[in-house]
Amino acid sequence: MHTRSLAVAAGIAVALALSGCSGGSDTLTIYSGREEELVAPLIEQFEQDTGTDVEVRYGDSAELAATIAEEGDGSPADVFFAQDPGSLGAVAGEGLLAELPGESLQRVPERFRDPEGRWVGTSGRSRVIAFNTDELSEDEVPDSVFDLTDPRWHGRVGVAPTNASFQAFVTAMRLQQGEEQTREWLEAMKENGVRFYEKNTPIVEAVASGEIDVGLVNHYYLYLVKEEQPGAPVANHFLPGDDPGALVSAAGVGVLKSTDSGEDAERFVEFLLSDDGQRFYTQRAEEAEYPLVAGIAAKEGLPPLASLGGPTLDYSSLGQELERTLELLSETGYTS
């Protein structure tokens, strides 16, 4: 009996394999580390506008980066649409991303793209301090992350040490203030009872519930949490000047060298950077990222992109600098 079942199973497997063969060159395959809930409507719009067939694999940006690296030249992906410069940098570092055409690149400020032109930012986000509006008025919220080591904030602050955005923030602090001062800040925060969370969303939820009073997060998580709890008493405070807590970062896109749909892939990049594609980030309730192309205004209620401070940083160096940041976070007991 078992041999028969095995034969049947093998038969099913082969049949599935054959029927499952997909991805001819007329379909554009996108690996998206950006959440489906956020970008699916944008991709649909691209399909409608251009008549291109698109297939999207959603996942975690870093895991998809690792997947592309393991796939090597055999990758079915044509486009990698990622949450952070780090993931794009990792794939570029494996030599798997093609150079993008100049016209697309030129639309985005230099600080939001790869100097070698292998990926380009598509939307921006700012680090902010989210605060509980029942407990605090905005002028009580500090204008610098360095003020949070004051005993007044003992046990009231939340961070997400394993989150890529937090790690980019620490890298920015290291490059701006130096290793020692960053270590001192991390240690002082720890002594001051800083609380750890796994991701940004739980921090904003904890601020909303009053578990903590302030949290270091990206600005747009506020809108996701408001969607779930419309009346939640939580708001964002944007830090002025070049405080590392005001770091502006980007989600971005790159085209794989191994693509067999190069034209469609470039058209997708073009679309993301077109006026329509950029305006998308300002249209829906839960979307509040910054368009990066000049002339497209940010969502109402957000300070304009040009007014945002934050440290100036070479994003392409973030990837290489990350290793030292992780060592520092591990030495100070923030992560493994």
Binding site: I12, G20, C21, S22, T67, E70, G72, G74
Partner: peptide, 22 residues
């Protein structure tokens, strides 16, 4: 990732099919 590695490189017809997931 181990199956990504083997399938994408050495068995691309089954890569990203239901058969490989099973």
């Amino acid at each position: 990732l181990s199956l990504v590695f083997f399938a994408a490189r050495y068995a691309s017809p089954v890569y990203q099919t239901l058969a490989l997931l099973v």
